[in-house]
Structures are given as C-alpha cells and as structure tokens.
Computed example of a mutant assay.
Amino acid sequence: MSRQASSKRPLITLSNAKSPVSESYRSLRTSIDFSSVDERMQVIAVTSAGPGEGKSTTIGNLAITYAQSERRTLLIDADLRKPTEHHTFNLSNRWGLSSVLSQQSKLDDVIQKTDIPNLSVISSGPIPPNPAEMLASKRMSALIDELREQFDVILIDTPPLLAVTDAQVLATKCDGYVLVLDQGKVKRDIAMKAKANLEKVGARILGVVINNVKRKKSEGYYYYYYGENK
C-alpha cells in the first residue's frame, strides 16, 4: 500500500496536483516567498488558534509544494503533545525531535526521507514530560541553526496557540509564522487573541490561512492566504 493511499490526512497536492486546492497551496508558498524582500523566509512555523483547524493538513501540503519546487524541504513535527505527521507520511515515530533534544539520538538518525523527492521529515518522537521547556531550550536553537545549513526550507508544525505555550516559545527561533483558522469553527475574538499571543512574543506573522471555505463538492476545501496585518 502506498504512503499516500494509507495516509490518515489528505495530501491533495500529491493526489490531485492540478486542483484549485493544490493551486491555493502553491499560492501560499509564493506569498511566503515574497513576504519579505530583504530577508529569506527559511524557517516557518505553522500554528492555529485551537485544535482541529487543519494546521497539520496545511503544513503537510505546503511542505509538498516546496519539495515540488525542487527545494530541499524539511518538515518538523514540533507538536510534542499530539503529534500527527508520522501518520500523515506513514513514518516511524520511535525516535524523533524529542529524542535529539534529550540527547538519546543523533540528528542524522531522526531525519527520515519520504517517498516524495526533496522532502524529509523529523517526527516528534516519544512524548516528553516537558514539551515547552524542550522547545525553548538552547539545544532546540542549535538544532535549527544546524538544519538551516542542510535544508532550503524548514517547516515546523506546532501545537495550537491557545492550548499551550509551545508555539510561542519558538518565536525567536523562526523567521515567521503562518496562522491557520477554521472559518466555521473559530470566532473572531478567539482569532484575534491567537494573533495577539504571537505578537506579544515578537513573532512575525506572515499571514493567515482561512480553512474550510467550501466550493463545489468535487473540489472539497479551499484555502485562502492573506498578507500581514490583515
């Protein structure tokens, strides 16, 4: 069984690369690339206000579009509480980010290649008792600095903003954030609180993905990208 066929999460950029949804992911990629003229957007974190808003689906598909543009792409599952990317890409989660941060594994041993050319994944690894402390550590900063030398693009899947502080503690280690919101689930005040939480720690918000905007049934979900300060 192929990885795509057995994935629990739809990777439409693989299964239907010509669909409007896939084109929206490519537009998101382009918007991120051009979000800064003077700085290179290399390390990008993706988060949401609450759970179930589609951030992990978004980052998985976004990672594929970067890989398809022939850039060395790494997806890091930094949701050390409820990891999902190993399910998405059918990878082992016996070791991963937490293993490296706890010095139980070497970095090279946890970088897993996928069936998709140019795309590698670091899964979360075993769930640790202190996720926020791990992500805030100097070791995490050193890890990202080392990976900057190996990959063109690094995408980090973080936990929801309003549930825990994990996403916020990564603010100084990333070049920017993309916030994913479910149009039918999140209320405006909650969305604004999530945005404020990022701004409070000096995070650069590259834009917002509005998820679950329905088009025709055959096209499924559509994703829109809005620039900074929208």
Rank of each mutant, 00 (worst) to 15 (best):
S2D: 14
R3K: 12
Q4E: 14
A5H: 00
A5P: 00
A5C: 01
S6E: 06
K8R: 12
L11I: 13
L11A: 03
L14K: 10
N16S: 14
N16E: 13
K18M: 08
S19V: 03
P20Q: 12
V21S: 14
V21Y: 07
S22G: 05
S27K: 13
L28R: 01
L28E: 00
L28F: 01
T30Y: 00
S31K: 13
I32M: 01
D33A: 11
F34Y: 09
F34S: 07
S36H: 05
S36K: 04
V37G: 08
R40E: 15
M41N: 14
V43P: 14
A45E: 02
T47N: 06
A49Y: 11
P51A: 14
G52S: 14
K55P: 10
T58L: 10
I59M: 09
I59E: 07
L62V: 05
T65R: 09
Y66L: 00
A67R: 01
Q68N: 09
S69Y: 07
S69C: 04
R71Q: 09
T73C: 06
L74D: 01
L75M: 10
I76V: 10
D79A: 10
L80K: 00
R81H: 14
R81S: 06
R81M: 01
T84L: 15
T84W: 02
T84N: 13
T84I: 12
E85Y: 09
H86S: 06
H87K: 09
H87G: 02
N90C: 06
N90T: 04
L91I: 05
N93M: 11
L97C: 05
S98D: 09
L101P: 00
L101I: 07
K106Q: 13
L107Y: 11
D108W: 08
D109I: 04
V110H: 00
N118T: 08
L119K: 04
L119S: 02
I122R: 03
S124F: 11
S124V: 07
I127G: 01
A132K: 00
S137A: 11
S137Y: 11
K138Q: 14
K138D: 14
R139E: 15
M140V: 03
S141R: 11
S141C: 05
L143K: 07
D145L: 12
R148E: 03
E149S: 08
V153D: 00
I154N: 02
D157C: 04
D157S: 07
L161P: 00
L162E: 06
V164M: 12
T165S: 08
Q168F: 00
V169N: 03
L170T: 12
D175P: 09
D175R: 07
G176V: 04
G176I: 03
Y177R: 04
V178D: 02
V180T: 11
L181H: 04
D182A: 15
D182E: 15
Q183F: 15
G184A: 11
K185F: 08
K185D: 06
V186I: 14
V186E: 07
K187I: 04
K187Q: 14
R188E: 11
A191T: 03
A191E: 07
A191F: 04
K195W: 13
A196C: 00
N197T: 02
E199C: 05
E199T: 09
K200R: 10
V201D: 09
I205D: 10
I205E: 13
I205T: 10
L206H: 08
V208L: 15
V209C: 10
R215T: 08
K216Y: 09
K217Y: 03
E219G: 06
G220F: 15
Y222R: 13
Y224D: 12
Y225M: 13
Y226A: 08
Y226D: 08
Y226P: 03
